[in-house]
Design a protein around this nucleic acid. Sequence first.
DNA 1: CGAAATACTGCAATATCCTGCAAACTTAAA
DNA 2: TTTAAGTTTGCAGGATATTGCAGTATTTCG
Lengths: 249, 249
Amino acid sequence: MLKEERQNFILNEVRAHSRVLSSELSLQLNVSEDTIRRDLKELSDTGHLRKVHGGAMSTSLNPYHFKDREIYAHEDKVLVAKKATPLFEDGQVIIMDGGTTNLELARIFHPNLKATIFTNSIPIATQLTEHPHINIIFIGGKLLKQAQVTIGMEVIQSLQRLKADICVLGTRSIDLKAGISEIDWEEAQVKRAAMAAANQVVSLAISEKLNTVQPYIVGDINAVHTLVTELNPDDNRLQPYHKAGLDIL
Amino acid sequence: MLKEERQNFILNEVRAHSRVLSSELSLQLNVSEDTIRRDLKELSDTGHLRKVHGGAMSTSLNPYHFKDREIYAHEDKVLVAKKATPLFEDGQVIIMDGGTTNLELARIFHPNLKATIFTNSIPIATQLTEHPHINIIFIGGKLLKQAQVTIGMEVIQSLQRLKADICVLGTRSIDLKAGISEIDWEEAQVKRAAMAAANQVVSLAISEKLNTVQPYIVGDINAVHTLVTELNPDDNRLQPYHKAGLDIL
DNA sequence: CGAAATACTGCAATATCCTGCAAACTTAAA
DNA sequence: TTTAAGTTTGCAGGATATTGCAGTATTTCG
């Protein structure tokens, strides 16, 4: 087994269980605990997890427990969410996946918006219960503890039976050539299904996510219709996306 | 179990109950009271809680402070949940529906319990993410805002494809003749499906729910195998249920 | 005050971590 | 194919961290 495969396995374990033990990983992967420790050290140095005595913990806490100012680049995300609100109208069927930018959007939807929202994110569903006229459909499946979103076949199948007006993607990475990409394979599958299930795809992304790539490709850049960032639409960094045919907000 | 997990569990307990006892934590976490004291000292030094003789209190800044008091008859519900914990073992597949008593149970599951839990309740799923070894499957469907549970055909169909070891019912009303009954028609349908999907049905009910009836019948009293209340099992009020063949805890 | 519970101190056992090193493996050029 | 340099891995050892226990001090409460 290659070192990179091993480290990917470790990252997946962390994402699924929000913590790992060096001793367990050593058994599961048939390598010495020293090797595991070296892997954890590397992954810790690159910020993918946090090493602790006996194993490692996931870095990102539950969005649900986040207080506003603990969210990274919170001001930018609020701005992105605000710019996106005019896209939503009464009567629409909307798909929203997880992420803190989408959570922000769920907070500031107009209180009278009458829409049906499908989501696989617990924090977003919880937030939406504050909106009296929004119909919430939760997409069930295996719950990923760290991100508090459901994943897996059941989620994908539910999405395949759906044709929504608009899909709002919390975006980890967006790039002209690589398109939308994700760090977790299963989340990437779910996002792909979400994109396919809507007539219009909106990507909410703070500018630092532009022109970055993750290991798992979700979909082509042309599958995205609208890109919302905190930047001015005339900003140079957005021009390539405009030329590729995306609406820029 | 990692030290940090243990400390997270403690913080969670403090948030939920606004106070903790060293002696209780020592039992729940299977470590000595010395270790608990050392944890409390660390958490106290970092300002996450306030150490007092015998345990710790939440800091006054804590926003979760009110939660417990909002729950009606909270002390009784804690007692019911505690009495139910021995029913659960490693490897089981468990169905839990909503309700504050079930939420209390989700809080106090042994932190090392290795089980798969199906639930349609958002607060319970959120609570369960604190347990590192529990596999959570969220049952998707239309979200009922007040109760924060999913309901409807999709939930019922998911349950019909399932055969679990044990189903834990938060119980609104239980009566010898009428059986289990509910105030909301759709919730009643979901609970009926949940009961049918498990080999053993456990009803958690505080005593004031005994011998009451609601408009919509969920199922016959004989479909319930175990009844857990805050009363002593010898209490007169429980004898009719014992005679009807239920196990009383 | 006195009993019981809780807390602190120092110590020992165990588990985990780190460092340096050598063997095994990979890569790429000769 | 061979060689050489670089990378990865496991292991030995000594260092550090974590935990439980025993003995003693302190707090609580009737």
